[in-house]
Design a protein around this nucleic acid. Sequence first.
DNA 1: CCAAATCATAACTCTCCGGTTATAGATATT
DNA 2: AATATCTATAACCGGAGAGTTATGATTTGG
Lengths: 107, 107
Amino acid sequence: METQTDLLFRALADPTRRALFERLCREGEQTVGALTATAGVSQPAVSKHLAALKAAGLVADRHEGRQTHYSPHTAALGPLADWTKEMARFWEGRFDALEDLLSRMDQ
Amino acid sequence: METQTDLLFRALADPTRRALFERLCREGEQTVGALTATAGVSQPAVSKHLAALKAAGLVADRHEGRQTHYSPHTAALGPLADWTKEMARFWEGRFDALEDLLSRMDQ
DNA sequence: CCAAATCATAACTCTCCGGTTATAGATATT
DNA sequence: AATATCTATAACCGGAGAGTTATGATTTGG
């Protein structure tokens, strides 16, 4: 079966796709055309990547006339943060590694 | 080119490989044989996954006689935490999503 | 009403990767 | 020394997926 965590990690695995998500986070809502302009791949490729990000819950789309606006949906990053935290927590004996990780997370 | 972040995300993308890493985090150092026993795939497959995790900096190996012990290396999770945090930070305007994520991260 | 524009889907190709079996290399055992 | 054990590597196979071009669906504009 295909769990939601699998979907999330797999969505972020591809560099092109991750770059699209990062750009949406930095610059906010964008149309497919705007994203395609500097993505380095064709428009259909961008559309497929966006569909994958949407399936993982990482972006949301909004239709306005003939163009589609995509925006980031950072709530989906919650499980990723949880997972990282959980993995680090098993390391409580190793204060060096744990402290380093916690110092990064607490602001 | 293949950046270190790419390596990290790709290493965690495969469910079998992620399960191996999770198990190392939960149970601590393990030999290849012990990991293979319950991995659900063949020993060579396990070895290849461990090699990928090692390339991503997620595990370290220690040779002892004819067996190899693998242990988690949570320092590698730092960049993942940084990335998540950075992506969330661009959303400071959206306090709902940001607060939710921060509440997960601060313990 | 016709043409241009915007995006998604279809169909296809090609590379990569996760799996296998077989085997080599190294170490332990008897 | 011979054999058994443990892991890594080699060689191969099949499927998934990331890319392409072509086209369909929808909407805007003249």
